[in-house]
Design a protein around this nucleic acid. Structure first.
Lengths: 124, 124
DNA sequence: TGATAAATGCAACTCAGTTGCATAAATTAT
DNA sequence: ATAATTTATGCAACTGAGTTGCATTTATCA
């Protein structure tokens, strides 16, 4: 069941539309410093994840990041979803790329979290 | 310059030799509960990383993990070093596999952190 | 309009990781 | 050997992310 699209929820979604990339929770909490409580932000993000509007991952900094994304590979292989952490602009973006899995090794892969570090398409 | 191989340092290294896989710092701190202070453990791990005896990464739990590894791919492509988080045994192991990079996208990749989730070679 | 359910705020908490400073142990110079 | 210096460890207090319980507000529905 979908959550209420309150003013705060819509503002949060707007942040993700403005931002072309992922946002760290801490950053978002700071952006809403005078508008909403941090607990609220944490809860809204969690619920938007449940609804699969957003997805979350642990950033290279060990913090929780959220992103809205419409990559075909993301929809197809939910888990196999790489991101790039750009040195230039500092943004973390989703990459529409399917990471191949090692076929020679006798391992079974259910999902993956891939974080690349380098220069993104905008900055390259 | 190499740090002193004190009794504690050697015990820490021994833990990594016994363990076939990565160890979370919190776990290691707990293992040394009565033998060494947590600050000491944090510092030893940091220094062993500087010496490139260990390497660290952020686990899927957002915690810091360390591992000793001798994979050829690790030595060759320092950054490109995938790990597998096994559902069966709960261990995190290094994978000797070179992750291909997306060639069609105009991005430059300097390093990557890859965490696969599934079943490791021992459990498969 | 009153009852119920969902959303928000607030304060206090947990837990990983860090920092400053004092002490202890090992090296080096005298 | 002993003193001076460097390096390692311990301890306590702190920071900052994320969580929890509970009270309050806001929206929904009977």
């Amino acid at each position: 069941m979908e959550m209420r699209r309150t003013k705060t929820v819509n503002s949060v979604l707007l942040e993700f539309q403005k931002e072309h990339g992922a946002i760290a929770v801490t950053d978002l909490v700071d952006r809403f410093r005078n508008k909403a409580n941090k607990t609220t932000i944490y809860r809204i993000l969690e619920r938007l994840c449940d609804e699969e509007v957003l997805h979350s991952f642990i950033g290279p900094d060990g913090l929780k990041w959220y992103a809205e994304c419409h990559c075909p590979t993301h929809k197809k292989y939910k888990g196999f979803h790489p991101h790039i952490d750009c040195d230039e602009c500092g943004k973390i973006r989703c990459i529409d790329f399917e990471i191949p899995t090692p076929k020679k090794l006798k391992i079974q892969i259910d999902m993956s979290e891939v974080m690349l570090k380098g220069t993104c398409e905008d900055c390259h």
